[in-house]
């Protein structure tokens, strides 16, 4: 399972970076979203994937028995998802506004501030 998740993370990162390197600003956002997803799954798998071992203290015991599914990474991911939702919403509006104002979705033509 960990291997599968690792492959998935790799594919998501690769696709995300590829899309970000394209010239269209819409692809830029999709790339950012994919990289965010990759980071979330990375957190999920980095802390270890455990099946059928909920983090509950069994009756008569005083502590958790290893291995158990760590709930903390899930809490981190949840927070990260909420944040990235807000950020993506903002970025989508920004891109639309930029397209209206500048009249192009080509990043190569948005170079007036770099000169």
């Amino acid at each position: 399972m960990t291997i599968l998740l690792a492959l998935l993370v790799a594919i998501l990162y690769a696709t995300g970076v590829y899309l970000m390197l394209r010239r269209s600003i819409v692809k830029l956002i999709i790339g950012l979203v994919l990289i965010g997803h990759a980071a979330n799954i990375l957190i999920f798998s980095a802390a270890g994937v455990v099946r059928g071992r909920p983090p509950l203290v069994p009756e008569g015991m005083s502590g958790l028995e290893r291995p158990y599914a760590d709930p903390l990474p899930l809490a981190l991911i949840l927070t990260a998802i909420v944040i990235s939702f807000a950020i993506v919403a903002f970025t989508a509006v920004l891109v639309r506004r930029a397209w209206q104002e500048i009249g192009t979705d080509d990043l190569d033509r948005m170079n007036t501030t770099d000169r």
Binding site: M20, L32, A38, T91, L94, V95, R97
Partner: peptide
């Protein structure tokens, strides 16, 4: 402002994603 913002937003979001990873 919008052109500058797109560059600012994109690169800072990359940084955030790396930070999170």
């Amino acid at each position: 402002q919008l052109e500058g913002a797109i560059k600012y937003v994109a690169l800072n979001l990359v940084s955030s994603a790396l930070f999170l990873a």
